[in-house]
Simulated scan of single mutants.
Amino acid sequence: MGLALASPALVTAEPARRITPPGRRAKVVTILGDSITAGLGLPADQALPARLQAALAAIGAPAVVRGAGVSGDTMAAGLARVDFSVQADSDLCIVALGGNDLLQGLDPKATQASLERIVRRLKARRIGVLVAGMVAPPVIGHGYAHDYDWVFPAVARAERVPLYPNLLDGVGQIINLTQRDGIHPNAQGVQVIARRLAPVVARALKAHA
């Protein structure tokens, strides 16, 4: 998440020729996100794009995973750059934004409107979409948390795209899986996220084929 803007972290892991049979184009997955995607505090080979690529290969669903994460990005900021951050050869885009909207207390209705527009733009380009949601922690007021948590399933349902309900599932609020800020996953935490996310990504890729 992080509030300081940084350049997009584009992580293109193993070349396509190494992960697909001869004559077949590798599937391409792009993660449109914030500092979690950008791998804040981690080397590139331990960041989510690289670890998700490895997890997909491990379950027999090889793909090239590109990171398009900018630290500090809100959903609206992701909307502003989705057309150039998600390249045309992407088969699937994981929209993994919204954490900074929560940290900044932005209106969930505005977050939802931006997410809807991101999904529609990607669909118009014939790029598959997987919405990776976030869940407000217990310390957030009940009313706001309810409205925020509803954003992701509501958009996924309305736009008929798959949903991964909580990107930080199994990692958030767990001390030994997060960095010192208590928010960003450490290398072990990223591994947990990648392993849990990979089967959902594989299904989304298959459905979009």
Rank of each mutant, 00 (worst) to 15 (best):
T20L: 15
V135P: 01
A209F: 02
L197N: 07
I183M: 08
R160S: 14
L92P: 06
A124W: 00
P21A: 09
G105M: 06
N166Q: 04
L205F: 11
V155W: 03
R25S: 07
A38K: 15
P62S: 07
T20P: 09
R180W: 03
A61W: 03
A187P: 08
P108I: 00
P22N: 04
A110C: 10
A4M: 13
Y148F: 15
G23F: 02
L177V: 09
Q46R: 10
N100M: 08
G78W: 01
P153W: 07
G78D: 05
R196M: 01
H184M: 00
S85E: 15
V95Q: 03
G99I: 03
M1L: 10
Y148W: 02
I193W: 03
N166L: 08
Q173H: 07
A55T: 04
L40H: 12
Q87L: 13
I193C: 14
A4N: 09
V190S: 05
Q104R: 15
L42M: 10
T12R: 15
L56D: 07
P165D: 03
G33D: 10
V119N: 00
P8T: 11
V82L: 07
L48V: 09
R17S: 15
V70S: 10
P165C: 05
Q104K: 15
K109P: 00
A44W: 01
G33L: 11
Q46E: 15
G60M: 01
V86G: 08
P21N: 07
I127M: 00
